[in-house]
Amino acid sequence: MELLCPAGSIPALKAAIENGADAVYVGLKDETNARHFAGLNLNQMKLSEAADYVHKHGRKLHVAINTFAHANSWEKWRQAVDDAVLAGADVLIIADLAVLAYAAERYPRVERHLSVQASATNAGAIRFYQQFGVSRVVLPRVLSMQQVRALARTTDVELEVFAFGSLCIMAEGRCYLSSYLTGESPNTAGACSPAAFVEWDEQDNKLESRLNGVLIDRFDENEKAGYPTLCKGRFSVDDEIYNVLEEPTSLNTLSLLPQLYKEGIASLKIEGRQRSPAYVSQITRVWRQAIDTVMADPDNFEVADNWNSVLSSLSEGSQTTLGAYHRKWK
């Protein structure tokens, strides 16, 4: 079972490798990937440097080219595939049908993984994408453990699941909430609730967060104010104010590790290319220990207290959840 860690920079990538990641995923410095944030990601030169470093340590480099290509700049996505292969990527993570087909036809020997952004949530969808020779599918964070198990037992492609990090509660690639409020689409521009649209303001001792002018949340003085990711805001339904869609919390699947291992899940993905090298170090260290422990003796696996305390301290609102994996969440 592979530990796949995020990196938005060379220092983060080194932190992941030094702390035991089996593979690292990165993106290019443009809208071809789903974490298109200022100051993040690698240019062509850094990408080569990343590949050399990862290969020197006998690990793998995955490159996410996982937004949907535009009609008038299709070449940019094709170029991203060319650049990633030239730099020495072991794996391309792709969502767009045509980008996938291009990679399959031009570089048949470079492994292709279906991005979570392609929203393949069932065996039929996986079968559809197999015509483009995908060897692995990254599952959206909307499936229960029971559904993951059913898929693992019916498909012959490798499955990758999100193990830890920020939680999308909507099927990835099928969420226009952020584009509805800001006009900038996560599917085609690569950012949800983009920072350029965020405003903070203090009104009557309350801190207000807005996205493109729409009030997302209001915090009392003693409350910890989180980033206004719009699905985690507090809104009102029939005059009751609450987290209508989801609380600010992070996904943490440590307790599911034995089940994921027994079902033959190929890879555990840690979310967070936008995070610091220090964050990547701490997270990677915990998950390396946890995976080694489960692989040594899956029947007697127990979650160590110090793993959970490290992960909680690195979580949104210091809270974690099993998300959709756990039926009660639904």
């Binding site: 290509a69 767009d96 049908l97 045509a98 929203s119 969808a125 690639g173 099928r174």
Partner: peptide, 28 residues
């Protein structure tokens, strides 16, 4: 969903691609 496209494609049937299928460019 693409699972439906897969089934219809296998049966050689024509289909309508609904708005939730992510098509943003001419190539796709």
């Amino acid at each position: 969903d693409v699972s439906a496209i897969g089934i219809l494609q296998e049966q050689g049937l024509n289909f309508t691609a609904g708005p939730a299928i992510n098509i943003y460019n001419h190539q796709s």
